[in-house]
Design a protein around this nucleic acid. Structure first.
Lengths: 135, 135
DNA sequence: TGACATATACGAAGGGCTTCGTATATCCTC
DNA sequence: GAGGATATACGAAGCCCTTCGTATATGTCA
């Protein structure tokens, strides 16, 4: 039986570059206040506090983050885990630039950047699973 | 000896979604007129002819495409091959969403979409090469 | 040659993204 | 309880992206 759509949160839109920078901080730090996010972002490059605040407010409206208002300083949290958003972004790029071919995207990725021996082993294991399934 | 930067074309900016849709057409059809690009785009969804024209004009300014004006109907061509732009986009996504880890991106890609047995074999071969180099 | 089809050029509207200034509320401390 | 630090809310400017209408040039054909 299908679930009631009215109870399911709407799909989160693709985050913009700035929003993704904030999501990365939230994934790393976990639930955080605007100040914490802002301080972390400012480590890389200066930015106005209210800019970070405004972005988090907009991200709340979009459903990219959730907000706990029980304290004076609201606490924000990424709504989706890093893995979920990453999968979404990969699928999106697959459709926009690779005609849907995951294989080609993987080739470009492995050519473009060195992966650790450990990661390569993980990938090999995944390949075994995938090929095993269709043999 | 380093090459003279003044002779090297400036790096192409990351294409927007609409621009990427046009690039995909150019990669598939090769050098094309606005009309050809527009007809191909319209197969998927209706769009105004001048919209496609304007986009191609802007893409020319940005250096995403080159334009041959020797005919009345200008002929456009993608400046970078599909593989180059794809690599650029993958590196970009790597930095924006994966903390630079190609391994994690690959895992997400292979989980997200089925790859053909042939592609999986290609990936395995690439893995052999990569691991061979550091053994 | 005149009329029509078709090309490019260009301006502008509308919307989204990013940034920031300012207003206002709340907490802490002396 | 007054003042300063710090929080949220909100509006607006500036820029880019997308779309389209219109003006104008050029080719084609009866």
């Amino acid at each position: 039986m299908a679930q009631d759509d009215s109870l399911r949160p709407p799909p989160a839109p693709r985050p913009t570059d700035s929003e993704l920078a904030i999501l990365r901080v939230l994934w790393r730090l976990g639930a955080s206040t605007v100040r914490q996010v802002h301080d972390e972002l400012s480590r890389r490059e200066p930015a106005g506090y209210t800019t970070t605040l405004k972005l988090l407010q907009i991200m709340t409206e979009k459903g990219l983050v959730t907000r706990n208002e029980s304290q004076r300083a609201h606490v924000y949290q990424a709504r989706l885990a890093a893995e979920e958003t990453q999968s979404q972004l990969v699928r999106d790029l697959l459709d926009r630039a690779f005609e849907g071919s995951a294989g080609r995207l993987v080739l470009r990725a492995l050519e473009s950047r060195p992966a650790s021996a450990e990661e390569l082993a993980d990938i090999r294991k995944l390949l075994d699973d995938l090929e095993g399934g269709q043999r």
